[in-house]
Structure formats: structure tokens, C-alpha cells
Design a protein around this nucleic acid. Sequence first.
DNA 1: TTTGAAAAGGAAACTGG
DNA 2: CCAGTTTCCTTTTCAAA
Lengths: 154, 154
Amino acid sequence: MNQLDPLDIEILRLLQKDASLTNKEIAFEIRKSIATIHDRVRKLHENGVIKRVVAILDRKKINRKLIAFAHVLLNDHTVNTLNQFEQEVIKFPEVMECLQMSGSFDFILRVATYDMDTYHDFYRNKLAMLPNINTVQSFFVLSEAKSDTAYPLG
Amino acid sequence: MNQLDPLDIEILRLLQKDASLTNKEIAFEIRKSIATIHDRVRKLHENGVIKRVVAILDRKKINRKLIAFAHVLLNDHTVNTLNQFEQEVIKFPEVMECLQMSGSFDFILRVATYDMDTYHDFYRNKLAMLPNINTVQSFFVLSEAKSDTAYPLG
DNA sequence: TTTGAAAAGGAAACTGG
DNA sequence: CCAGTTTCCTTTTCAAA
């Protein structure tokens, strides 16, 4: 796959912020022809640089009022234990992210629930029921000063 | 603003996964007319339920190979200190998220850099230069078993 | 609300420069 | 990388149920 040039970077910068921009609008913005933009965007999709285009919802308007980060430590770190945990935990719809981490615990989970009651229910009846859980520490989001899906570029 | 009905939920479920679906495709999927879908989607935008539509990039293909979570504890918790920290830290392009948290530290930062060297540079020359930083603990993503922007619905 | 159908506009796929 | 053209598809609008 070819490296990204400054034009690709410009296009990606715009599409990361607003993917509903038309090729025409992008072309105007960065002073290139529509055909060029069309070509570049197609290639960025084909090369998998753009993985997908998604709608970002206002979580308060869909009643997902509580976001928690759960730090999970497992009892052991055999491949089996790690794989099994991942396979099971990603099935829970409340779990938006499951990241294996370096450091004093094994996984960070980002969990979205309605409120503290439903988080508690998730914690007791779903997460803590999985095998090989050693400890779970939960932290709750009080406010979001920045919440971007866009990676820094260039 | 009106409550979401099951039809809205169905539409949002699809658009959270793939916002490049056309109204026609959505209409076919959930057996409604194109005009109905068009109307619903327009209202979901107007009401702010859909905040925006964005392109999600493959971070490895844009060379953002390292994702770190930094847990930041400040020296005090006056409104001024908290506000000042937020205002400054969100200016760093490396910081994708800045969330104030309950618990044993004040903020979680999600930081995207090229590699450990550039993270170290960010840490020493940007983050640690801010006033009123007490402690920073950094954790690094080893692997992503699940990485969704979609909230659970319904 | 929902619908089908017509009008307007953009995307896709080509040409050739 | 650009301009133009043609075809196709989608969005948008609207009258009616």
C-alpha cells in the first residue's frame, strides 16, 4: 500500500470530522477537482485506511447516561484464559471497548449503561460471572471535556 | 423532543454500524418506504440524536501505532484548576479524549502517538508541563478485542 | 405517519488532455 | 491531476391516503 501524501491527509482530516461532506464540497475546500477527490477517497476506502463510516449518537438522548471504565485483572495469563475472557466479554452489548493493556491490570472495558443500577446489574450478573476474574475496579465518567473519534494526522 | 420509537431504534442501530447505508437500503432492511426512512433520519439529525457522521480510520495505516491511557491526578480540585487543566490539555492534538472521573484520580486521557518515543515526548514536553499536575500513570494498549463507537440500544 | 412518484442533484465510470 | 460527459442512483419534495 502506498504512503499517504499531504492531499490524502487533508481529505482524511475533513472526513474524520464530517463524513457527510460530498466530493464537491471537499474539492472546493482544498482546491482540487472533484475527479481527484473522488479518486483519492475511493482508494482510501479500498486500501482500508478508511475502515468505515458511522453515525455518532448523543448518548444522553438515547439514555446511556453512565459510562464506566472497568479495569480487570485475571487470575492467570495463559493464552486460554485471555482468549476465553475476550471472547465472552465482547458479547455483552454494554461493553463498547475491550482493550488488553500493559501494566498492573489486564483489560480496560468501556461500559455504557442507563445508570448506576444497570451498571451494578451488569457488574454482578454478567462481568463478575465470567471465569478467572481476579479483581475489577470501576471508574465512572463525570464529564467529557473532549471526546473525539478522529486521530491526529500528519 | 419526542421519545424514540422502535423504528428509530432500528434505524440508529444500522447507522451506528454503517452510516454509508442509503435510505433505500435501510428501507429494504426494515420493510418501510424510502420516504419514511428519509423523514425519520432527518428528524434524528434535527433533534441531535445523531450528532455527526464520521469516517473511522485504521490507526495502524496512519501510523498511530501507540494508544495510551493516562490517569491524571491534580494537586487540588478548585474549579479554576480543573477548568484550566481541561482547557489546556484538550488543545494537544494527541489527546483524543479527556474525561473527568470519579475515584482515585481526576482524568483519563486517551492519547494517540506514533510510538513510545513520541509518547514520551508528549508526556515530558507537553502533559507534564501543565500546572498543578500531581501524578500521571500511563497504560498502553496491547490489543483491541473490541473497539466500537456504537452504543447499545433498546 | 406513511406512501408512491416525479424532479433535482450527486456519485460512478468513462474519455481524453 | 484535471475537465467534460453520460449513466445511474439517491435524495428531496409533494400530493394523497
